[in-house]
Design a protein around this nucleic acid. Structure first.
Length: 259
DNA sequence: ATTGTGGCCTGCCCGC
DNA sequence: TGCGGGCAGGCCACAA
């Protein structure tokens, strides 16, 4: 599903729209417009505007125009298409069908072409001038100090804190499980119970996990991904993987080396 | 404030 | 062969 890795691919794809002017907006699905936004208001705000940049904070894609900023969220099944090209071909848990009925918002661009969000399950959304201050440090650039601050003095499971977008932006279920597996930390541990050494280890693995998933091609390319089954064995020590719900999410971990 | 839970969205997969 | 239940997880509302 789109975690920070996929949204980073989307950002790179969206770079193709920089310098192009928006001529029209199609927003047929009112549910997809968030924060009281209407199709009419969105069209009025951005029609005639030129896209000046594409940024990403966590899982939020931001399109800066010479007017307002458009925020795009992809949930777990949303794909970005620019001029008919998909930002991600292989999206776990979504559908690869070419189904225009799933286009929830389309920004038509001058001279032909467009940028659209295709989301079968409608879990994503569009925001106008989203409040960026509500997001924590981005996982691709988070510092050890920021990670410590995000986890310190919390009794919540470390995995839940990692996935709290207001503390660390961009960690979804697969990245959380992969990084904690690599760091040898039990996802259910209280976030505030990590030692300095464990915090440093987690920070290192978080960064390298995301770097590797980016170069491999997606959040589903982690070492532990194929072990997320009832018969799955830990790729490191061949121990049967443990399936639990942690932080409200299906969680796979190794009961032997994750402590 | 913090933490946990349940609901929403709907295509897809499995078993009968 | 068709059908129905369960599942996936990001996000939000709400409760304690």
């Amino acid at each position: 599903m789109p975690e920070s890795v996929e949204v980073e691919y989307y950002r790179r794809l969206a770079d193709r729209t920089v310098g192009r002017r928006i001529t029209a907006v199609d927003a047929p699905d009112a549910w997809f417009l968030k924060g009281g936004l209407t199709g009419r208001a969105l069209a009025a705000a951005v029609t005639g505007r030129t896209i000046e940049g594409a940024r990403r904070i966590g899982k939020l894609l931001l399109l800066d125009t010479d007017g307002p900023t458009v925020g795009l969220r992809f949930g777990m099944t949303g794909r970005l298409l620019v001029d008919g090209v998909a930002g991600v071909e292989d999206l776990q848990y979504s559908s690869m069908r070419d189904e225009p009925a799933w286009d929830r918002v389309t920004f038509r661009l001058e001279g032909g072409g467009d940028l659209r969000v295709r989301d079968p399950r409608r879990l994503g959304g569009v925001l106008l001038d989203p409040d960026e201050s509500r997001l924590g440090a981005d996982v691709l650039s988070i510092t050890p100090v920021q990670l410590r601050q995000a986890l310190a003095r919390s009794t919540a499971p470390v995995k839940a804190r990692l996935m709290d977008q207001g503390r660390v932006a961009g960690v979804g279920n697969l990245i959380a499980d992969e990084a904690l597996w690599r760091a040898g930390i039990d996802p259910a541990r209280a976030a505030g119970s990590l030692s300095d050494a464990e915090l440093r280890r987690l920070h290192r693995h978080l960064r390298t996990t995301v770097d590797e998933l980016l170069s491999r091609g997606g959040s589903h390319t982690g070492d532990v991904f194929h072990a997320r089954t009832p018969e799955g064995l830990c790729p490191r020590d061949r121990t049967p993987m443990l399936r639990r719900t942690v932080g409200g999410r299906t969680t796979w971990s190794c009961p032997k080396h994750q402590r």
